[in-house]
Nucleic acid binder design. Structure first.
Lengths: 115, 115
DNA sequence: TCCTTATATGAATAATTGCTCATATATTAA
DNA sequence: TTAATATATGAGCAATTATTCATATAAGGA
């Protein structure tokens, strides 16, 4: 028995596939990226920002959420480099950082609509 | 004060954006889709299956995980229609359901590698 | 200065979730 | 039939997480 899985049929194949796997930390980062998109509130924020640059209170209004909840989520989105912020007076305007965010959203949307 | 957010500057904009938002249930489904990709173990499974059709034990070996953990995650992936299963004898072979899964994975990977 | 508005944030809570462990089912071999 | 192998699954647990609440900070207006 060659591999730890105990599956005799595919042991050679399994070793080959294992050797071709991306590094764990890369796969972890990819999962972390998707995790950001995997929350209703954050997806709503992303979609709203796809339509327009918006301030925190407007985002709260648009998403039927509270200012606090949105602010917490915006911090997460900012840390993930998905949105950027611009402060004018006491108002902070948020917008999507780049088109990659929109691209990812659209592919996800397509996938859902095809099911 | 027109909108519940109390933000006078953007109240008209906010109402306009809100009217253009996708339905909550659509956005929820999109988030749910991304959520599936947002776990290290599942991403490892998806990447491994991108390389080859594999049985449960091989997947456990390749991902350094247990048979039980992988089986649980495969059930989630199957329910989400991301993988399909084919039983031959006592071995169950899993593979990706379609190229959309690969496409989503690749866009996520690109995004991570650009950061 | 005092008040209001806009945003941020720490703590607490409730809900979700991924894993482990034990066990069940199914198939094949002896 | 009995044993071994491959997979599935329910219960319990630990960790994560999204929200709420209270409060802090910051800016503008009276």
């Amino acid at each position: 028995m060659e591999c730890s899985c105990g599956c005799l049929i595919n042991s050679e194949l399994a070793k080959k596939v294992k050797s071709k796997m991306l590094k764990d930390d890369i796969l972890f980062e990819i999962a972390e990226c998707f995790k950001i998109f995997g929350d209703s509130t954050r997806i709503k924020i992303i979609y709203a920002l796809k339509l327009s640059e918006l301030c925190v209170n407007d985002l709260a209004f648009i998403t039927n959420s509270t200012q606090s909840a949105i602010s917490h989520q915006l911090r997460i989105l900012k840390q993930a480099k998905l949105v950027k912020a611009k402060k004018i007076g006491k108002v902070v305007y948020y917008s999507l950082k780049d088109n990659h965010v929109i691209k990812l959203f659209e592919i996800g949307r397509e996938h859902v609509e095809e099911l």
